[in-house]
Amino acid sequence: MLKFFYIVSCLLIISLIEIPQLKKKEFKRERMFYIGFVLLGSGLLTANLMGVAIPNPLKAMEYIYTPISEVVYGFLT
């Protein structure tokens, strides 16, 4: 829990410094993306730290590539 607070407060500080800078330059789209990305990232991070199961992208990769791998290995043994 402490870790979580720590990370979130760090992010908050960094964001508070960065967002005004983006505002100054009139980067509107960039600002939206920034906020979106940070929220997505910290959401994932928090969920992970809270122990929520998140689908693992490697599982998808495993699903796609295992047949290929097996074919190649079958060929080479």
Binding site: F33, F37, L45, I54, N56
Partner: peptide, 19 residues
Amino acid sequence: KFLVVPMSIITLSLSLIIT
């Protein structure tokens, strides 16, 4: 440059998620 912070948070969570 503004992408660095959000990207690092996402990659960090990815590295925790993937295994």
